[in-house]
Amino acid sequence: MSSVRVQELTKSFTVKYKQAGLAGSLRSLFAPQTEEKVAVQPLDFTIEQGEVLAFLGPNGAGKSTTIKMLTGILHPTSGSAEVLGFNPWQERQKLAFHVGSVFGQKSQLWYHLPPVDTFELMARIYEIPRGEFLKRRDQLVERFELGPYLNTTVRKLSLGERMRCEIAAALLHRPQIVFLDEPTIGLDVVVKQKIRDLIREMNREEGTTLFLTSHDAGDVEQLCKRVIVINHGQVILDDSVSNMKREFLTHKTIHLKLAELPQPIALPGVTVVKQKGTGMKLSVDTALTSIETVLSFIVTHYKLVDVTIEDPSMEEIITHIYERTGKGGV
């Protein structure tokens, strides 16, 4: 059964065009110039119930606009969409009872009040019976480990703590589908990992459909089974994450800080990108040698002070996808 069905969905905005400076502003005041900007070109895709989908693309690709149309926030220019059997922009209110949304840059939490108060309001907004709400709240507090700061005003929480509260608030009403728009933006690696674990658990235990946008390759690798890449509002890749990884996520970068000058490294697929004193940057083709093997070699042969492993950025992956699909650069 499909959760989301999108057909020929498009969105255009009229954008005011102004030349630089005061003179440009004056010209624009008397003779405004506008142009039609196509944010989303005809999109077609289907998402099955319980699926975890990564919806990727560079900034301005049309990801957020698509999410906003699928949650009924924006009306499309043309085309149709069905989310859980509802037309999002015509049946917005009915649909909203079954949808959760986490916008990394737009908070649902009341800034001057503790999260526990926002949860109370969410229960009223989503009309959750009192007993059910308290049970669900306590379950989420335990699972997301929110206990220590449940009664602390949001303005005094760290970004990671706030984000966990945001996600918990979005899950209170047991949504069937959750739209996560960059949920790990600005978080450190430990908090990112924690949030990924929680999202994965929610999908596994409650069968929630997840629609994720992120610029973090780790989010995609660890959470998603399927990926759709768009740019200039057009789908350029719709495939499984394992296929994408096989084709595009083949390299990792290792930064090393050593206690003494290193010996040469001779492993297939491992190349020294840069070396300066005891600092070293390696590129590893994981199709030829696993990261585990490389790390094991490093620990055995070098005196290690510090090590960092990096995935290629989403922009790099998308650039590769473009090169393969022949659609130009990002």
Partner: peptide, 12 residues
């Protein structure tokens, strides 16, 4: 663009 939060909720 701050209407998004309200539009995502099932209330008038």
């Amino acid at each position: 663009g701050q209407l998004d939060t309200y539009l995502a909720q099932p209330k008038p």
